[in-house]
Amino acid sequence: MNKALSVFLRGIVIENPLAIIMIGLCSSIAVTTSVANGIGMTAGMVFVLLCSELIISLFRKVIPGNIRMPIFIVVIAAFTTMVDIIMKAYFPDLSKAMGVFIPLIVVNCIIMGRVEAFASREKPVYAVLDSIGMGIGYAWVLIGMSLVRELLGNGTILGFQIMPAGYQPVLFFILPPGGFLVFSLFIALNIALRKLWLRHEASRKGGA
């Protein structure tokens, strides 16, 4: 498999940032109480990840090694603040719902982790592919979790009533313990998918 494709695909299952690398978990469990929040958080996070990886990768040769962390933080914080301001101006309702989580993107370990482990060493084209792959991996777990939690914990999806009127919402799923439970189920699902994926890859290699 060529490098570009493998860099892109890796983040989706094999190295899923949430379920396998297990970084950026606090905000994930906190925001997944409703699907709208999950989508908003994903959009903000992917935008910041993409921009930060691209910029860091472009400037990787002029960033001195011993002050790379503060520089990463400056870049990430600048993009996060931009997302915050733009959301306030153009999507005021979403911005109100996301509240405290947008500023938290700054300290989301996924961005710091990918910038440090990947973008600061690779060419911009791979950094962009990496951020998109990781973004998809983040999105499906995060939005999946919020679907399960909103449906079971509130009986709705995106605010629309899905469960029959007699359904008593299980508040447990909205509360943090429910978040941990749903997250662990997604880890299990992702591990199963990963096994299938790796077996498939091995059998293809063996056959060739």
């Binding site: 960033i63 001195p64 011993n66 002050i67 520089i71 870049v75 914080a77 600048a78 931009m82 301001i85």
Partner: peptide
């Protein structure tokens, strides 16, 4: 001094962008 200047440069550009 050089490190400080590089950091200041990045912060300056981020500032202008913001």
């Amino acid at each position: 001094l050089k490190l400080g200047l590089v950091l200041a440069l990045f912060a300056g550009v981020a500032c202008v962008g913001l």
